[in-house]
Simulated scan of single mutants.
Amino acid sequence: MAVYKLVFAGPVGAGKTTAVQALSDIEVVSTESVATDETRRLKRTTTVAMDYGVMRLDNGDQVHLYGTPGQKRFDFMWEILAENALGLVLLLKGDAADPVADLRIYVNEFRSFIDQTGLVVGITHAEAAGWQVRQQVAREMQSLGLPSAVMEADPRSRAHMATLVGTLIHGLDPVRAGAPG
């Protein structure tokens, strides 16, 4: 049995906790706390350390899922959670004021990790944003020299999240990812 680790990152309210819950075959370990800053205008609770779940694959392998906090003040957790992970699932809110700016922020923060592993981007809340957001994000990823694996995704849907995870895993370079040869 192989064990893999993936990290979910993105801004507050993008659906990281929900995505980990949708994928996990165990009860999710969550560090949700009542929001006490400007985040409370967006949602009542927020992740302050991480979310953790396990997805069991049909072949017996396991994917350990780590959701990062979305707030910059908890960014010290981002590097800790990314350690030894195979790649990054970046969730962006399609209805945010500037999803492309959010992309830039997270790519800048995780760039060395992304360059060593892999990245896939899921646009959440896409029904309110329209398909243009996906196009804008894909164009920006190309301008940043990143593969443009961008898709609309509902974090509540196990199938949508499994497609993101599968896209990330299948796009990894097995030598860089440390997969058995």
Rank of each mutant, 00 (worst) to 15 (best):
L65W: 01
L65H: 02
Q142Y: 09
S148M: 08
P174S: 11
D75F: 10
G171K: 08
G181Q: 12
K5N: 09
K16Q: 07
T124C: 04
A2E: 14
W78R: 06
S24G: 10
V137K: 02
T31P: 04
A179R: 09
R73C: 06
L90F: 04
A14C: 15
T117P: 03
E83I: 10
E140Y: 09
P155G: 09
E27S: 11
F110Q: 01
A177T: 07
G15Q: 02
T163E: 14
V3S: 14
E32Y: 08
Q71K: 12
A14V: 10
V3K: 13
V120M: 07
F110M: 10
A22L: 08
I114P: 02
D95A: 04
E140R: 06
R41Y: 12
Q132F: 13
E38K: 12
A101S: 13
L23F: 04
A153T: 08
T163A: 14
I169Y: 12
D95F: 01
A19E: 03
A126C: 08
A82K: 00
L164G: 01
T68P: 00
T47M: 04
G13D: 07
D58S: 14
R40F: 11
T117I: 08
S143E: 15
A129H: 05
D51C: 08
H64S: 05
Q116A: 13
L57Q: 10
G171P: 06
R40T: 13
Q136D: 15
K93D: 15
P155V: 05
Q135P: 07
E38M: 10
H125P: 03
F110E: 01
S33K: 14
P99A: 03
G13C: 10
T17P: 03
G178D: 05
Y52C: 06
T117S: 11
K93N: 15
N84F: 07
R139S: 11
R134W: 09
V3C: 11
G118C: 02
A179L: 15
G94L: 00
V107C: 05
K16I: 02
G118M: 02
S24N: 07
T36K: 15
A2G: 11
N59F: 07
F113C: 05
D102M: 03
F113I: 10
S143Q: 15
I105Q: 14
A97E: 15
I26H: 09
L168G: 00
T45M: 14
G53C: 05
I105V: 15
R158F: 03
A96Y: 02
A19S: 12
P155L: 06
G178N: 04
T167Y: 04
G130W: 01
D61E: 13
R139V: 11
R158G: 04
R41E: 15
G178E: 05
G10V: 03
M161T: 03
V175Y: 10
V34S: 09
V20Y: 03
T68K: 02
V133T: 07
G130N: 04
S33H: 11
T124I: 01
I123P: 00
D25R: 09
T124V: 04
L88E: 00
R41T: 11
R73E: 08
M77H: 06
H125M: 13
S148N: 14
W78T: 02
M151N: 06
M77T: 02
T18H: 06
L42R: 13
A128P: 06
F74T: 02
E152V: 10
G94Q: 01
V54D: 04
K16T: 04
G87W: 00
G122K: 00
D25N: 13
L103I: 01
S33Q: 12
N84S: 14
T47H: 01
